[in-house]
């Protein structure tokens, strides 16, 4: 129900409370009022209708992949 696209923060405008975010080479300004944590260049955010709704800690992406490998290992054992 909600198209969410991850992107990398390139620049933050404190007084307008927005961030310039790079989505695979396409840059777009995204509003930060709804984000769950302060962001800085280099962070990843999840964009939905032009608002950052989540700061994605890079290690979380790695953790999710490890979770899948764990699932596979368990499934193989059964």
């Amino acid at each position: 129900m909600c198209l969410g696209v991850p992107g990398k923060v390139v620049d933050v405008d404190r007084d307008r409370n927005t961030a310039t975010v790079d989505f695979w080479g396409v840059k777009k300004e995204v509003r930060l009022e709804v984000c769950d944590a302060p962001v800085a260049p280099g962070d990843y955010i999840l964009n939905h209708v032009g608002f950052a709704i989540r700061r994605i800690p890079p290690e979380e992406a790695v953790e999710t992949l490890a979770l899948y490998d764990e699932l596979l290992r368990l499934a193989d054992d059964q």
Binding site: L3, V5, F23, W24, G25, V26, K28, N47
Partner: peptide, 12 residues
């Protein structure tokens, strides 16, 4: 192109 994929993902 990467940009076409990106704009496609962003706008659905």
């Amino acid at each position: 192109r990467d940009e076409v994929r990106a704009v496609g993902e962003l706008l659905g």
